[in-house]
Amino acid sequence: MCETCGCGEHLHEERTVTLKQDILQENNQQAEQIRAYLRSKRIYCLNLMSSPGSGKTTLLEETIRRLTVGTIREQSQLPIYVIEGDQHTDNDTHRIAALHVPVLQINTGTGCHLEAKHTMQAIKQLNPEEDAILFIENVGNLVCPSLFDLGETRKVLIVSTTEGEDKPLKYPYIFQEADVCIINKIDLLPYLQIDMQALRSNALKVNPHLRLFEVSALKGTGMDIWCSWLIEELAKCK
């Protein structure tokens, strides 16, 4: 029995417990569960990350249009689902819903990124069919989303030409985590002083394995190349 309070329950001597425990363990375990679930249903999942205003939603709209109409549709024909992450508003959800695609909005409030628990909750609600594509549009932020695995198949980073060529060096974590980097708004190049070669080489310095694409989601330039790559990826996933 304890001599201090007589409880017989708790410790009164100090002791050290060694944990060596990963602080992100819970998120990472949930992400692995999601990944296994998506793989079992042959659902290809992309986590779209970028700073606010680099054109994630426009890129997503144009990608969905190409996957649902025209020549690329004939190759894919897969059901599409979207999870939209924003701190506030459901503006993006309305834009995606207009394309007749099931979409679920997650508002993080003060949260600056999505976590695996958000994906899990959203997938339960969306209940996607087998053999599908799931897009997750993360909260616009070039810092925080890099730390949180959502269980996606691939991480896609979108950076726009207006952001400058030094962004990979200023925000290396997110460039290092990404599998694909889409340089958007190339239609604005005549009006900008950005050094595209420097942007490409900076991105590859931080992550030599990045797959780079250059597009104007608004004007459609380069979008077929990006979508064709996506179709090839989907075929590999089968």
């Binding site: 009164h12 001597e13 002791r15 417990v17 060694t18 944990l19 060596k20 602080i23």
Partner: peptide
């Protein structure tokens, strides 16, 4: 990581 905690 959490390396260790001291508890009482």
């Amino acid at each position: 990581r959490i390396k260790s905690i001291c508890i009482k």
